[in-house]
Write a protein that binds this DNA or RNA. Structure first.
Ligand code: SF4
Ligand code: SF4
Lengths: 157, 157
DNA sequence: CTTGACTCGGACAACTGTTGTCCGAATAGA
DNA sequence: TCTATTCGGACAACAGTTGTCCGAGTCAAG
């Protein structure tokens, strides 16, 4: 039960991209976060496949958000990088073994699968309620302004 | 983002153990579910470490639940087998790189970590609300009685 | 009491999924 | 036209999970 570590990087990148109006290259983002440049590229690829960011090739290229910050939820980023399939996968144990339940009686999902599905649903719903804009607002409130300005200047260079 | 598949087996075992008053061996449980006998033993070991079941050695030994079925939650089983640490682990990216935030300004947790923690909390809370007794009640309501009686008889033999 | 067979417990490999890396295709600008 | 720069997907290294095994300890029977 471990979420992909790239989710954290993806969220940070979305926050940074929202702040900078110009395209930002993967190399810049990697240096800013001090993480592997190649691996971050893979995560950005996933975001691009999901349609959250749009990549511009060639000189002065980079990544830009496709939508406004308040239209991108944390769940979008999580599902783009970590996948959409739920953590719990039923293997239909009750249809195996000597006391197997016949398949025609398995029309209704069992209580275990329903419980897990419900928990997964509230988890996703909780993540869907927070948008990138909310994160940005909180970051702006809690981090010193001089650091924010410095980061924006460093990105432009 | 994948939960350990043993969680499903552990829950099934708890349901079965609650139905049978006498100790049940790991071999019986494995044959009933048609799963690897040795691997199920490992999951039962985890349950034993967590204090959910008590093992009796020697002849006519096996596993028994330590508490009543309505005092064991699904979350207990999940945490016993899959671990208690949350899926999201913050690597403190903001304290690295050229635009690092000084450590003394990192006293309050960042919004990303708070969002993930909140989602994990509601997920666990949802699992805590369901007990093994609830699962048993649902199973008794949805499965044909003859199969239940047959399984109980097969366990006794 | 002795014996005996049966039980769980932890230590030991094999496999899938994640992490990390690389170079080629495509593009914008000069 | 040409070049420097960018992303994109294909290629290894690592870790965690899955699966297996045999020995220490124990209860019941004789
Ligand atoms: S009884 Fe439920 S948890 Fe078990 S195999 Fe069937 S659907 Fe999955
Ligand atoms: S800003 Fe939040 S998510 Fe990012 S490293 Fe710090 S605590 Fe973790």
């Amino acid at each position: 039960m471990k979420m992909s570590g790239g989710v954290e990087w993806g969220l940070h990148c979305c926050v940074v991209l929202s702040g900078a109006g110009a395209p930002v290259t993967a190399a810049k983002l990697a240096e800013l976060h001090d993480v592997s440049q190649s691996y971050l590229a893979k995560q950005l690829q996933l975001l691009s496949r999901a349609g959250l960011v749009r990549s511009t090739l060639g000189q002065s290229g980079g990544y830009v958000l496709t939508r406004a910050a308040n239209e991108i939820t944390v769940l979008d980023v999580v599902e783009a990088i970590d996948g959409v399939e739920p953590a719990f996968r039923c293997t239909e144990v009750r249809q195996r073994g000597p006391m197997a339940v016949p398949a025609e009686r398995c029309d209704t999902p069992c209580p275990i699968a329903r419980t897990m599905d419900s928990a997964d649903r509230v988890w996703r719903e909780s993540l869907r309620r927070v948008t990138i804009a909310d994160l940005i607002a909180d970051v702006n409130r809690t981090t010193p302004p001089e650091i924010l300005a410095g980061a924006r200047e460093w990105l432009r260079a």
